[in-house]
């Protein structure tokens, strides 16, 4: 028996999310009195792979093949299922992100394993296997029972504490079995922004809504994000209008984020918007309308004009940071 975690890499590197996943897998392994095993697909150097050991992975399967450079759902699922079988994995852990959502359901069919997506805690019981997940676009939680012998979980971001442990992991090269017939999709072009904090990774997010009034007025919002070391986001009408790139759109139909701090500027707080941001630890709202629903979701707020408040906000952050 074992707990298998799939650790995606980004240009050969892991990030916080990867360590969160390994910590989670290790904690389930402890509950089950077994070991956490990780599988990595793609080009990752040994030093980087070893890092997974620091969070509790006992063994790391390293799958390297030029063909597997880009995500291809079908062969990735096949490989992960092969490792799961080899290691007799009972529980499989994925991220609840683009890649996890693409691969986990395929693996679950291969292993005939029930899937719980967007889980936020350790299983509350092992027999029956019960775990809590988000439902109704984050408006509620459900306790779900997985009845199959094997289980597939996707972990909601920022919901489990990262824990370092003393542990030396062994790295094993794994040669999967696959054929050309498994590669029926092909990546032709990759367009990625580099050097910017990704919205889904950011600890602090500064977000603007229609109350920002026009795209030219975004400069101070960007400056606030910069002094805070955060990323920028926006509400749906703002991206629909083309004021901001659609990658910034957060909410039920956009990105779902869970930063430490979410600052909503000129955003009314529609239920569909909150669906994407309500898991933030702290929410701050600035709005001229004291009855705007965003104040019901917010921890801190200012009733006032965002354009007057932004310059003071930036100055105050600079001062407070300078005070140390």
């Amino acid at each position: 028996m074992s707990v298998l975690v799939y650790t995606e890499n980004w240009d050969g590197k892991f990030k916080k999310l990867s360590f969160e996943l390994v910590s989670y897998a290790k904690a389930i392994a402890d509950q089950l009195n077994t070991e956490a095993v990780a599988v990595s697909i793609g080009n990752v150097e040994e030093d980087e792979l070893k890092k997974l050991g620091n969070y509790g992975a006992k063994k790391i399967f390293n799958v390297q093949d030029e063909k597997l450079k880009n995500l291809a759902n079908q062969p990735y699922a096949k490989i992960i299922a092969q490792v799961a079988e080899k290691e007799d994995a009972n529980v499989l852990v994925f991220a609840n992100n683009f890649t996890g959502k693409a691969v986990a359901p395929r693996v679950s069919v291969k292993l005939k394993a029930g899937l719980a997506g967007g889980v936020i805690e350790l299983p509350s019981s092992l027999d029956p296997f019960m775990v809590k997940r988000k439902v109704f676009t984050n408006k509620a939680f459900a306790n779900i029972k997985i009845k199959s012998e094997k289980k597939v979980l996707t972990l909601f971001q920022n919901s489990f504490e990262i824990k370092e442990t003393e542990n030396a992991a062994s790295i094993e090269n794994f040669t999967p079995e696959f054929s050309d017939a498994d590669f029926r999709t092909e990546v032709k072009e990759v367009n990625k922004v580099t050097g910017k904090i990704l919205l889904t990774d950011a600890e602090i997010v500064v977000s603007g809504g229609r109350g920002m009034k026009s795209p030219e007025k975004w400069e101070p919002l960007e400056e606030l994000a910069e002094v805070l070391g955060g990323a920028t986001a926006c509400s749906r009408p703002v991206s629909d209008e083309g004021w901001r790139p659609h990658e910034e759109h957060v909410g039920q139909t956009g990105k779902i984020i869970a930063p430490n701090l979410y600052i909503a500027l000129g955003i009314s707080g529609a239920i569909q918007h909150l669906g994407g941001v309500s898991s933030s630890k702290i929410i701050v709202a600035v709005n001229t309308d004291k009855d705007a629903p965003i104040f019901e979701a917010a921890d801190y707020g200012i009733v006032g004009d965002v354009h007057k408040i932004l310059p003071q906000f930036i100055e105050a952050v600079k001062e407070v940071k300078a005070e140390g």
Binding site: F141, I144, K147, Y300, Q312, F313
Partner: peptide
């Protein structure tokens, strides 16, 4: 392969702490 046992609503949030618009530094 799965079954819902029950549902929960998120715990109610404490009321928002409002800071005066003349006092942004207090918020920070």
């Amino acid at each position: 392969l799965t079954e819902y046992e029950n549902f929960e609503m998120p715990p109610p949030k404490a009321a928002v702490k409002l800071v005066d618009e003349e006092n942004v530094k207090e918020l920070v």
